[in-house]
Nucleic acid binder design. Sequence first.
DNA 1: TGCGTCAGAATATGATCAAATTATGCGAAG
DNA 2: CTTCGCATAATTTGATCATATTCTGACGCA
Lengths: 236, 236
Amino acid sequence: MNVDVITSTNPFSGSETGKTPAHQTVYEKLRLTILFGDLAPGQPVTIQGLTTQLGVGMTPVREALRRLIAEGALTHQGNRRVSVPVLTVACAQELAFMRKTLEPELARRAAARMGPDILARLRDCDDDLNQAIAQGDVGGYLTHNYRFHALINDTADAPIMAATVDRLWLRFGPSLRVVCGRFGTSNLPDKHADLLAAFAQGDTDAAGRAMAEDVAQGAQQIEMALTEDSVPRRFD
Amino acid sequence: MNVDVITSTNPFSGSETGKTPAHQTVYEKLRLTILFGDLAPGQPVTIQGLTTQLGVGMTPVREALRRLIAEGALTHQGNRRVSVPVLTVACAQELAFMRKTLEPELARRAAARMGPDILARLRDCDDDLNQAIAQGDVGGYLTHNYRFHALINDTADAPIMAATVDRLWLRFGPSLRVVCGRFGTSNLPDKHADLLAAFAQGDTDAAGRAMAEDVAQGAQQIEMALTEDSVPRRFD
DNA sequence: TGCGTCAGAATATGATCAAATTATGCGAAG
DNA sequence: CTTCGCATAATTTGATCATATTCTGACGCA
């Protein structure tokens, strides 16, 4: 049994592949699949499975996997076996600490560089997010919440920090899906309104504070869900 | 003209390679080469050059490069070309901010977990470091300074943060060598004595403060050297 | 229950194709 | 006549694939 999630028949089968390399498209596809929790924690990922599912050779798949492993999105499970990492409580606390220190700074920088166009796109993201919450759409919640934060981090104009935080989200992703799937989207508070207000006023300190609170809330949710049962997921 | 730095004839040529995969050894070799500045910033790195120099096929080299690119140790220079990244002032400030927030926390955690054996090894590292400084040995300075900090970060028992900080060092590496090569090792102050004292007393807060000062000093050195002339290195 | 064999999957190599950079040669202008 | 510029060719390099080899895990048999 293998990864049957990536069922999208690639639009460039046989004919021209555009100009983006195959390993790049494989990487991006797998990255999104992991980020939005379509791959469960602990699930094994095989090279040959991906070659047949994506219709590409082994080399691009191999490179994409190596890249995702380097980013922490996948792990070398023992000897020669690759799988989606299972988030332990200790890891979640590490990720939470790093998010709490890095994302407020990114929010501050984003507030200093905020423009009306970015602000409008942020409002769109938040509207989509609230709609997804109202409808109980877990996938939509994850997608739009990520879009919201990623847009802020990109606006901060700090590529290294943004990439680092992105990797943190990549580690949270699989478990976030599990948490949301268990508790639903109804009680998922956020500080996005405060953030948008701070951005609208160009108040960097308020933006930093709001982001700190938002991250702390999210981290608390995850930790609560993780400490509830020490083993996050069982495959028997 | 290519990377002629990695001249070490591999000890396992032809016969058994032990059991570590080839891409792993290639990765480790290249990583150390970059970390200790044996590859100048801006220097191009080619796949085929590495295959001939290291005597391995393209696939292992390719995977190692992909991994190092994901870690920020190498960059995709424009179209399909890989090179050692040139550290800009903005990037250096980002790295400095991240180090200032993450490494003190790692030092605090390390202080909480410090034992006499680790402490002894830290003293050894610092002794070697001071000896290298006294002798003006730039390579030794870089090596032992890294060993000192890496041991602290490993002791903190926070793998994700430690790996993140390690990637930060990987980005500093090439430029550190340039800076030291220009100004020598004579005026390179550090707070290692304060750190060791704090570790010896198990004083977590003092350890965090000492590490913060050490990182701030190092970052200031780099920034000064980088702002002095905007172009770090010239190849003519 | 322990050991041997087998299947499957990952690692690594070489070949092949495509793209880009460099080198070269021809023409035109000063 | 010399020199500069551009276009084209050749070489170098990167990307992908198909294939051989090795290692791990499992199943079956004693």
